[in-house]
Design a protein around this nucleic acid. Structure first.
Lengths: 184, 207
DNA sequence: ACCTTACTTTCCAAAGC
DNA sequence: GCTTTAAAAAGTAAGGT
């Protein structure tokens, strides 16, 4: 009974970083990226928004970039390659091979049961619940090291995960713990 | 030897000056909020504990004072909202909240979430509502909490809606605008809570 | 009253103030 | 700590019709 394995998580956002291994002359490669924003005083990186996959890339002079907004690891990697390929049209020396690392995965899930957050706040360890400030209860899990936001509706957000497996595990462990404490 | 001694004097002198400044700041904020001496003392205890545990590093004295006051008000069951604390201190709501979380975590202070019930006496007296209305409002809030109707909702909004409903039920009607202004929420929020409470609780009377 | 937009919270990397 | 990006959750707020 109490099958925790039936909890379905939906990946909502992925943050990935890439290191090209070669510094970039931003003024030189920026023209290859249509609609790019660049305000050094405001932020040191170029802001490039892609429509497909719908993502946003932050590109730095050091040759490192950050991609946010993708809903799958595959799309995140695809978006990074699209941006890098475009820049390479203006700078042939940009490597074709480079490292990409998944930094954060945000997922949502539904425990299919309403939660009494004041009760959860009292019995569950490592929680913060300040309804005056935010309607969700913050639950920090140690293993995997992820943070969950629990809502009265039973909906959950898991963030801080480095892999889909950790996000899934985080939600499952949270559900198990809530059942264990008779808070489900 | 003499130099080391002088340094101690200098450091303790600075420490004393900082403490004196913090306490005057605490008194200033407290009087603006109209807080009783007991709450000011509770806040000064929190502040002194923060200093003893070296938690002031990287934080403004004003911020720690404001967070100490916020915590003391909650512990004494006479809560002020983060907005009210931010208004009288020269610290943003965001920093008061951030420092409050830091202090409670580092000093192992675990306060339960603010109960809407704690706002009833203050809001009711500012609205000139009777003790009967207050009791009715508290009764409504307790029923709401028992049915899980307060999870995730702002305590002031729940207290405001309960007082509004109680005032109508007991013939001391106040407008949503009056209650909203004193509770620091919008009329829309009172209407939303009002709808949930009247639909899901047995008030014994149809409004 | 409705609708839309927007802010609160959590996470993370990037370069630099 | 801040700046910029993205995304979900749900409550609250503000402005327009």
């Amino acid at each position: 009974m109490t099958d925790v394995t039936d909890v379905k998580i939906k990946v909502e956002n992925i943050v990935a970083s890439a290191t090209l291994g070669k510094s970039l002359e931003l003024p030189k490669v920026a023209p290859a990226l249509e609609g790019v924003e660049y305000n050094v005083e405001q932020f040191p990186g170029l802001v490039y928004k892609l429509k497909e996959p719908k993502t946003a890339a932050l590109i730095f002079g050091s040759g490192k970039l950050v991609c946010t907004g993708a809903k799958s690891i595959e799309n995140s990697i695809k978006a990074i390659h699209i941006a890098v390929d475009k820049m390479r049209s203006l700078d042939p020396d940009i490597p074709h091979e480079f490292e990409i690392k998944i930094q954060n995965i945000v997922a949502s899930a539904n425990l299919m049961s309403t939660l009494n957050l004041e009760a959860v706040a009292m019995d569950l360890e490592n929680t913060e619940y300040e309804p005056e400030q935010f309607p969700g209860l913050v639950y920090r899990l140690g293993e995997p090291k992820v943070v969950l936001l629990l809502f009265g509706s039973g909906k959950v957000v898991c963030t801080g995960a480095k892999s889909k497996e950790d996000a899934q595990l985080g939600v499952e462990k949270t559900k198990e713990r809530l059942i264990e404490l008779d808070l489900i | 030897r003499l130099r080391k001694w002088q340094r101690k004097i200098r450091i303790s002198g600075a420490t004393e000056r900082n403490l004196a400044f913090a306490l005057s700041e605490l008194d200033r904020d407290s009087s603006r909020l109209g807080l009783p001496r007991s709450v000011r003392e509770a806040a000064s205890v929190v502040y002194r504990n923060a200093v003893e545990n070296k938690l002031i590093r990287g934080r403004s004295i004003e911020g720690v004072v404001a967070a100490s006051l916020y915590a003391a008000c909650r512990r004494c069951n006479v809560p002020r909202t983060l907005d009210e604390i931010a208004e009288v201190s020269r610290v943003t709501k965001k920093e008061v909240g951030r420092t409050y979380r830091f202090l409670t975590r580092e000093l192992n202070i675990k306060l339960p979430p603010t109960s809407p019930v704690d706002y009833v006496p203050r809001f009711a007296s500012e609205l000139g509502l009777s003790g009967e209305v207050q009791s009715k409002a508290i009764d409504i809030i307790e029923q709401a909490m028992a049915k899980g109707l307060t999870s995730g909702r702002g305590p002031t909004g729940v207290a405001a809606a309960a007082l509004y409903i109680a005032s109508v039920l007991l013939g001391e009607r106040k407008t949503q605008r009056d209650v909203a202004d004193i509770a620091g929420v919008t009329e829309v929020t009172i209407r939303n809570r009002y709808k949930e409470l009247t639909e899901q609780l047995d008030m014994g009377v149809t409004l």
